[in-house]
Amino acid sequence: MVATPPPDSAGASSGTSGRGGRASATRRERLRSHRLSAPAPSVAAAARHMLATQGQEFWGGRWALAARTKGRATIRDVDAAFERGEIVRSWTMRGTIHVIPSEDLAWVLSITGERQGRQVAAVRRAEGIDDDEMARTEQIARAALSGGNRLTRKELFEALEAGGVSTAGQRGYHLLVSLSLRAIVCQGPIVPREGGPTREQYIVLTEEWIQDAASPANPLAELFTRFIASHGPAGARDFAWWTGLPLGVARSAAVESLALSDGRRDEASARLTVVAEQPEPQYVVTGPAVPRRSAAAPEVLALPPFEEYFLSYADRTVPCAPEFLSAIGPGLNGIVRPIIVARGEIVGVWTHSVAVGRHADDPVPVLFTQGSATDLEVAAALDRYRDFITA
């Protein structure tokens, strides 16, 4: 059955401006789901809601969480959440590094880790990384990190070299990713950097650093429901893209999630709801716990590279007019540029350097069309980012 959620729970019944009423309504609801119009009370709460936030650019992943947090969250606030062990960073899906709540790392990797490993098996063979090499790598890493030790990537690689495991070329990277996909290590506390925001984290043993790992009864259904809660309206194709799982598995996850939701007796529980059937079912999460929009949330936002609001969908023309997609990416180099979002629609890009001595420079916006956002709105959005990065 297709349901129409209440106006502040899903925007499928509201909004008519922009490129079509339905697209506008979808953008409005996604802003809420992404906590861009309904900010979270803390960085940890924003991360918990998003589950996995893209973090290839480390500063960008941290800004993605701060932009979803009430008030003027700074990079120090996000780094403190890493230091407290509330969040970590690891290769959680699609061979891409994400920021994720510590408690959720292991069960998410139980779904995505093996598939990611198979996808890079040929590269590992080319690098001469076989099972025996990985066993030696794990033994050395455990010995070097046990007892609460934390090492930089360089220090871990030095330990591997001292133990007879070569990290030359790309071998060190692939060895680290392999350890991470099996949840042996993760990236946790911040490595300080003089004169600018850090670009690095210490590597730690997952079993020692994370003490409160969650264990959902149905991990695949949990993963789908959490994706819809943070990205809906969305469907199985979007979930398949986001996770890197096959479309058949994604559709099964949707069916399982909907069945579990329908079977709940507790009216206070979040529920998976179908809001459109064509061309494929689109879902949102409804219920009393769904974040409510804030009148104080800005309507124009400067969001980071690899932003979830843009990148997490099979069809990216909902938030962005087709003619501007190539200006954002992914380009031939795989880069996805920072974006400016006005009332749910991507209206431009921006640039900024986090190099030492340059992170306090003014970010530079480039709007696709004039009149999509005022100069004051864009300046306020970029000022909020600058407050974050210069704290």
Rank of each mutant, 00 (worst) to 15 (best):
S9F: 11
G11F: 00
G11D: 04
A12Y: 08
R22T: 15
A23T: 14
R30A: 12
L31D: 02
A44M: 03
Q56D: 14
G60I: 01
A66P: 04
A67F: 03
T69N: 09
K70V: 14
K70C: 11
K70P: 05
D77E: 05
D77V: 08
V78K: 00
V78M: 03
E83M: 05
R84H: 01
V88T: 13
W91H: 14
R94D: 11
R94Q: 10
I97K: 02
H98N: 08
P101I: 04
W107C: 11
G113T: 10
A122Y: 03
R124G: 00
D131P: 13
M134K: 04
A135F: 09
I140Y: 03
L145W: 08
G148L: 09
L151K: 00
R153C: 08
K154T: 14
L156G: 03
L156S: 06
S166L: 10
T167V: 13
G172P: 05
L176H: 02
L181K: 00
P189T: 05
G195M: 01
G196Y: 00
Y202A: 01
T206W: 02
I210R: 03
L220R: 03
A221H: 10
T225W: 03
G232R: 01
L247H: 12
V249L: 10
S252I: 10
S257Q: 05
A259H: 09
R265S: 15
A268T: 13
A270T: 14
L272V: 12
V274K: 08
Q278S: 05
Q278L: 03
P279A: 02
E280A: 15
F306H: 07
F310L: 13
R316L: 08
A321E: 15
E323S: 12
F324A: 11
L325W: 06
L332A: 09
R337I: 11
I340S: 09
T351D: 14
H352W: 02
S353Y: 08
V354W: 01
V356Q: 00
D361V: 05
P363M: 06
P365C: 12
V366D: 12
Q370V: 12
G371R: 04
V378N: 01
L382K: 04
R384E: 15
R384N: 15
R384G: 15
Y385E: 13
F388D: 08
